[in-house]
Amino acid sequence: IRVFLPNKQRTVVNVRNGMSLHDCLMKALKVRGLQPECCAVFRLLHEHKGKKARLDWNTDAASLIGEELQV
């Protein structure tokens, strides 16, 4: 999953079965001084340019493999 972060940063996270978005993104956020409780995560909708859909931090990350997200 490719993730666009604040301050023009980005990362790619690996996903294993059973992991939530929170689990996958925790380290990437922590390294940058961010906390999931203070952030929202969105899936970028490529079929609708510029649109995005808000996701819950408990979403199964395996269902988002190959997607691009924005925090």
Rank of each mutant, 00 (worst) to 15 (best):
I1A: 01
I1Y: 08
I1N: 05
I1M: 08
R2A: 07
V3W: 00
V3A: 00
F4W: 13
L5H: 02
L5A: 01
L5V: 01
P6V: 01
P6S: 00
P6T: 00
N7Q: 06
N7M: 06
K8C: 07
K8Q: 11
K8D: 15
K8I: 02
Q9S: 08
Q9L: 00
Q9F: 08
R10G: 10
T11D: 02
T11S: 07
V12E: 15
V12W: 07
V12K: 07
V13P: 00
V13E: 03
V13M: 06
V13H: 01
V13W: 00
N14D: 11
N14E: 14
N14I: 08
V15P: 08
V15W: 03
V15D: 00
R16T: 12
R16V: 13
R16F: 04
R16G: 07
N17Q: 15
N17T: 14
G18Y: 03
M19I: 08
M19N: 02
M19Y: 09
M19F: 07
S20G: 04
S20H: 00
S20M: 02
L21S: 03
L21T: 06
L21F: 03
L21R: 02
H22C: 07
D23N: 12
L25W: 01
L25V: 01
L25D: 02
L25C: 04
M26N: 14
M26W: 15
M26H: 14
M26E: 15
M26L: 14
K27L: 08
K27I: 12
K27W: 11
K27C: 08
A28K: 09
A28P: 12
A28C: 14
L29V: 01
L29F: 04
K30E: 14
V31T: 15
G33K: 11
G33Y: 05
L34R: 00
L34S: 00
L34F: 09
Q35D: 15
Q35H: 09
Q35L: 10
Q35W: 05
P36M: 05
E37A: 06
E37R: 08
E37P: 08
E37L: 02
E37W: 05
C38W: 07
C38T: 13
C39I: 00
C39F: 01
C39Q: 01
C39P: 00
C39H: 05
A40H: 12
A40F: 04
V41G: 00
V41N: 06
V41R: 02
V41E: 02
F42C: 01
F42G: 03
F42W: 04
R43D: 02
R43Q: 09
R43Y: 15
L44Y: 07
L44C: 09
L45F: 12
L45A: 13
L45M: 14
L45T: 13
H46T: 12
H46P: 11
H46L: 07
H48L: 10
H48N: 12
H48P: 14
K49C: 12
K49F: 08
K49M: 11
K49V: 11
G50L: 09
G50W: 09
G50K: 07
G50V: 09
G50R: 09
K51E: 15
K51N: 10
K51P: 11
K52A: 14
K52T: 10
K52S: 10
A53E: 15
A53L: 13
A53Y: 09
A53F: 10
A53V: 15
R54C: 06
R54N: 05
R54F: 07
R54P: 11
L55C: 06
L55F: 00
L55K: 05
L55S: 06
L55V: 12
L55R: 00
L55G: 00
D56V: 01
D56E: 08
W57D: 04
W57Y: 03
W57T: 02
W57Q: 04
W57I: 06
N58R: 10
N58F: 04
T59M: 14
T59E: 07
T59Y: 04
T59V: 12
D60K: 03
D60R: 01
D60Y: 00
D60C: 09
A61M: 05
A62R: 11
A62V: 11
S63I: 07
S63A: 11
S63C: 10
S63P: 09
S63H: 07
L64G: 02
L64C: 14
L64V: 09
I65S: 07
I65T: 04
I65R: 06
I65Y: 04
E67H: 14
E67S: 12
E68S: 12
E68C: 11
E68N: 09
L69W: 06
L69A: 01
L69M: 01
L69Q: 03
Q70G: 00
Q70F: 14
Q70P: 00
Q70C: 14
Q70V: 14
V71F: 02
V71G: 04
V71C: 03
V71N: 00
V71E: 03
